[in-house]
Amino acid sequence: MTTANVTPPVGEKHTDAPLISARGICKTFGTHQVLHDVSLDVHRGEAVCLLGRSGSGKSTFLRCLNLLERAERGIVMLDGELLGHHVRHGRVHRLPARQEAAQRQQLGMVFQQFNLFAHKTVLDNVIEAPVRVAGRKPREAAKDAVQLLERVGLADKVKAYPGQLSGGQQQRVAIARALAMKPKVLLFDEPTSALDPEMVTEVLQVIRSLVLGGMTTIIVTHEVGFAREVCDRFVFMQDGRIVEEGPASRLTEGAEHPSTRDFLSKVL
């Protein structure tokens, strides 16, 4: 394996170590290599958006970060901890499922299809992991859950089942559920792509307030306008590679790479 291209993060202002770093991530589905040597650093409090056409590998990369997909090569470090692996006798070994699960709770994830637990009420969805994984008392977890649901504007839906909610409401519950584990990083995988247009705003509003509150986020999105306004930095992917990254403000006219410009001209 060639040495991973250790590009320093674009925002040079950071002096501390990045909160999450990926180096040389390679991923193949069958014979098709979807990620080629992808590396990324994200600092505490930073909001980064991943842009690119469908099939460019941005969702797969996001899923590699919390080990939902297993990269064949490359590593992910979160807050100084190697994710999913440990080094012994000069080799990287995979961690047992139990420890992997323990690490994964540090990264929250919000899915395109919400994936709320269909057989549980909104409250039970939110307290499931705090009670079962973090071992908190149900009553305390419920108290926090209600606060989180208030933050996303759904305190009155505590007893509802996911099927009774609109897509936008379900996605806001999903965000509250991810936040309930107090993650260090929040990953959004096209959070508004499955929503009716009139519901996109309410979800973006919640994400915006999280970013403003200092949450470290990585967002895969097609909402370039939103990305430019809310994110600090954009990363543009094509054919499984990062072809350009830069401050999000440059998304309007400052993009340099021809593919980025081409993409932006089509979506803006």
């Binding site: 939902l68 323990a102 929250g108 899915f111 994936n115 637990f117 584990m181």
Partner: peptide
């Protein structure tokens, strides 16, 4: 997706 959401929350198999 139900399994993935549970995995992402740190639940064990």
């Amino acid at each position: 997706g139900q399994r993935e959401a549970a995995l992402a929350l740190g639940m064990r198999p």
